[in-house]
Amino acid sequence: MIWSRHNISSPSASADARMLWLLRGAAGTATALVLLIFLFLLVESWPALRHISIGRFLIDPSWNPGESMYKLTPMLSGTLYAAGGALLLATPLGIASALFIAYYASPRSASIYTRVVELLAGIPSVVYGFWGLTTLVPLINQLHPPGASLLAGILVLTLMILPTIALTAHAALFSVPPDYLRSAAALGISRWGMIRGVALPAAKTGIAAGIILAAGRAIGETMAVLMVTGNVVQHAASLFDPIRTLAANIALEMPYATGDHRAALFVSGLTLMLLVMMLWSLAAPLGRNRDA
C-alpha cells in the first residue's frame, strides 16, 4: 500500500501542525486588522490632535479649513438629527414588519414579504441616494424648497435601516418560546393582547439590539445621505433645511484636503468609529443575553 502515502487517510503529524500554524496566521491577521485600522486613524489624525486642541473642534466659530477653523458641531448635529429621525420612523415600521411576518401574514405572504425586506437590505446606498436625488428631492422641493434637506436624508435613511430592524426583531420574536404564546392563547387573550403582553416583552432585548445596530448604520452611512441632504454646514432649524453629516463631510473634502485639514477629517473619521463602536458595545451584551 505504498500509494496510500499520497492518500488523504495517511495521518501526518507535521502536516497537521503546519496546517494549524497556517490557520493561526490567517486568523491572527484577521483579528489584528481592526487594531491596524484604529492605529492608522490615530496616526493620521495625530497632527490635528497635536496642533488643535480638542476644544476647538467644538468652539471654533465655523468649519472653514482654509482659515484653519475646525468646528465639527454642526456636522455632529446633522449626523444625529438624520440618524435620530430615521430611527423614529424606522423603529415602528420595522417592528410592525416583524409582527406582520411573525403573527399576521399567511405563510406564503410572510415569505414573500421577508424576501422584499431582504432585497431592500441589498439595494446599495448609492442607488438609494440616486433615487432620493431624482425622486424624493424634487417632491420635497415642491412642498418646500430647496428640497435637498434633512427630511430627504431621514426618509432615505429610514428605508436603509428598516430591514436591519425588521429582520433582527423577527429573529427575536421567532426565538420566543412557543409555550408562552400557546399559554396566552389558552387564556383566551386576544392576538394583540398576546403580542403586547407576551411576545414583545419576551423579545425586548433582541429588538433593542437590532435598533442599536441600525443606529450605528445610520450614523456611518455616507453616500445616500451625501446625495440628498444638500451638504450645507449648519445647524438645521427645520426639517427642510439642508445639512451636512460627518461622514458626508469626509467624502466631500477628502479628495483635496492636505495637512491639518486632512488630519481633521481623520479626526471626524475617528469620532465616527468611536460612536459606532460605543453603540455596538451597547448592543453586543443584549444579543448575548438573548442567546443564553
Binding site: 481592526v34 486613524l41 450605528g216 456611518g220 455616507t222 461622514a247 465616527l272 459606532v276 463602536m277
Partner: peptide, 17 residues
C-alpha cells in the same frame, strides 16, 4: 469580538484607512 467590531465599522472609515 474584533471581527464583529470590524463589521460595525462604517464604510467611509474603511475608505480613510
Amino acid at each position: 469580538y474584533s471581527l464583529q467590531m470590524l463589521a460595525a465599522v462604517p464604510s467611509i472609515v474603511f475608505g480613510l484607512f
